[in-house]
């Protein structure tokens, strides 16, 4: 463990707390893409199946359980409890175009052709594009509530911080995982224009308005 990975995981934890708090407090999931949340649940389910087979640490187990529970709780809020506030018309990204290529790529490019390894690889590839429906929805509505943009900033920062973790681990332990690194860079790059808008607008107290 290193400070970059710890900050990354905390940033991820803060993101899911912000999201759940926003939905619960405002009793509304307006502006939130249910499709992205479905993809995140898929990502964590595929990646954290090893919870039953390998024990890494209390921290590792605790965080995996938190991310699994929060992703399913968010789906429950969006599609059941507060489904009246779910903006279905603006959440139209075709997620099958993200899932199928991730499955194919995981079957073709992986470290080891075993069940858990291919699932892990699938989850890494899918996570790199899982935010697209959410970013697409923000671009369609042309704006995002500031709490939603704080959520996106924290979520985007998590994998960005992991890049520093991978650099650190390569330099200090000669350890690297090219699949996680490439996917993590793609994932972080997808947030770049949002990061720019967040820093130039939201931090100045303006609403996040995307050029329509």
């Amino acid at each position: 463990m290193n400070v970059f990975r710890l900050l990354g995981d905390l940033s991820h934890l803060i993101a899911v707390i912000i999201l759940l708090q926003k939905i619960w407090h405002t009793r509304s999931c307006a502006g939130i893409s249910g499709k992205s949340q479905v993809l995140f649940a898929l990502v964590y389910t595929a990646r954290y199946l090893d919870l039953v087979s390998t024990y890494v640490s209390l921290y590792n187990t605790f965080m995996k359980v938190i991310f699994l529970i929060s992703s399913y709780a968010t789906i429950y809020f969006i599609y059941m409890k507060f489904r009246a506030t779910y903006d279905r018309n603006h959440d139209t990204f075709r997620i099958e175009f993200l899932i199928l290529p991730s499955v194919l790529l995981a079957l073709l490019i992986n470290h080891q052709f075993s069940f858990l390894e291919v699932l892990w690889t699938f989850s890494i590839y899918l996570e790199s594009v899982a935010i697209l429906p959410q970013l697409f929805m923000v671009s369609k509505t042309g704006e995002a509530e500031s709490i939603t943009s704080h959520y996106l900033f924290a979520l985007g920062s998590y994998r960005g911080l992991y890049i520093f973790n991978w650099i650190y681990r390569y330099w200090s332990e000669q350890h690297y995982d090219i699949i996680a690194i490439v996917a993590g860079v793609v994932q972080t790059v997808l947030y770049c224009d949002f990061f720019y808008l967040y820093v130039t607008k939201v931090l100045k107290g303006k609403k996040l308005q995307l050029p329509a």
Partner: peptide, 10 residues
Amino acid sequence: TNDNDVKDEL
């Protein structure tokens, strides 16, 4: 080395 040992990252 690629990451065949136990995966310790989230």
